[in-house]
Computed example of a mutant assay.
Amino acid sequence: MHDHKITTDFTIFENIDELSSTQKKLLLKAIEIRDHAYAPYSRFSVGAAVLMENGEIFTGNNQENAAYPSGICAERVAIWTAMASLPQGRIKKIFISARSDKTVVDQPVAPCGACRQAIAEYETRQKENIEIFFTGEKGKIVKSNSIKDLLPWMFDNSMLS
């Protein structure tokens, strides 16, 4: 037996002013689409913007349903829209922003487990890291260089051979 330590690296931006112009544009797209989410049950809205290798941007927001498991997260809406439009495309960056009608979300909100797995699928497929930026409605913005930082023991297609 031996112990094994896993470490991850993240970049923390104190606010939007520390982002590059491209990064700001993507975050603002995520915020804009977040504010059109359909979240009548949780009152928790999430928006995502996906930047593709060719420069195209695809957005998505969470869509809830009275039958709770039937809803879908913003990240998967944006990713699957992008990949449906550009099946051979490569995802470069994902920006995520969340807010609540119940309280101020001033902490970064990372992707849920299902969304992490969806991101892992495409990062594995394209054999190239996807940068993931996430934030609340205000405050710090966290940047992960790869889904592996958020999901270090991820399940991928290599397990199925």
Rank of each mutant, 00 (worst) to 15 (best):
A82D: 11
Q126N: 08
I91F: 10
Q117Y: 00
A120H: 01
K127G: 10
A110S: 15
V109Y: 12
I132E: 03
E64R: 06
T103R: 08
W80R: 13
Q107I: 10
A120N: 08
F134R: 00
V77D: 03
E75Q: 05
A98H: 03
E75H: 01
A114D: 02
A120M: 05
V105Y: 04
E75G: 02
M83V: 06
C73H: 04
Q88F: 10
I119D: 01
K93D: 15
A66S: 12
Q117P: 00
I96P: 00
D101W: 02
I94D: 11
E123W: 14
G71L: 02
I132D: 03
Q107W: 07
P87F: 07
V104Y: 09
A118Y: 03
R90M: 13
I72E: 03
Q88R: 12
I96M: 11
N65H: 15
A114G: 07
M83F: 13
I119C: 03
Q117V: 00
A82N: 13
V105N: 07
A98R: 03
Q117E: 03
A74R: 00
I119L: 06
S100C: 07
R99P: 00
W80P: 01
I94C: 13
A67V: 12
Q126E: 04
V105A: 01
P69H: 09
T81P: 01
M83N: 10
Q88K: 15
A114Q: 07
R125E: 11
Q88G: 10
E131Q: 15
P87A: 04
E64Y: 06
I91R: 09
A98E: 08
A78R: 04
F95H: 12
N65E: 15
A114P: 01
R90F: 08
K93T: 08
S97D: 09
E123F: 15
G89Y: 05
T81Q: 09
A84M: 07
I130G: 13
A110Q: 05
E75K: 02
C112R: 06
P108Q: 06
M83I: 14
I119G: 01
Q88D: 14
P108C: 06
D101K: 07
L86I: 15
K127S: 13
A74D: 00
I96W: 00
C73A: 14
K127F: 13
R116Q: 12
P108G: 09
C115H: 02
M83S: 10
C115N: 05
A110M: 12
N129P: 15
E121A: 08
R90Y: 08
V77S: 04
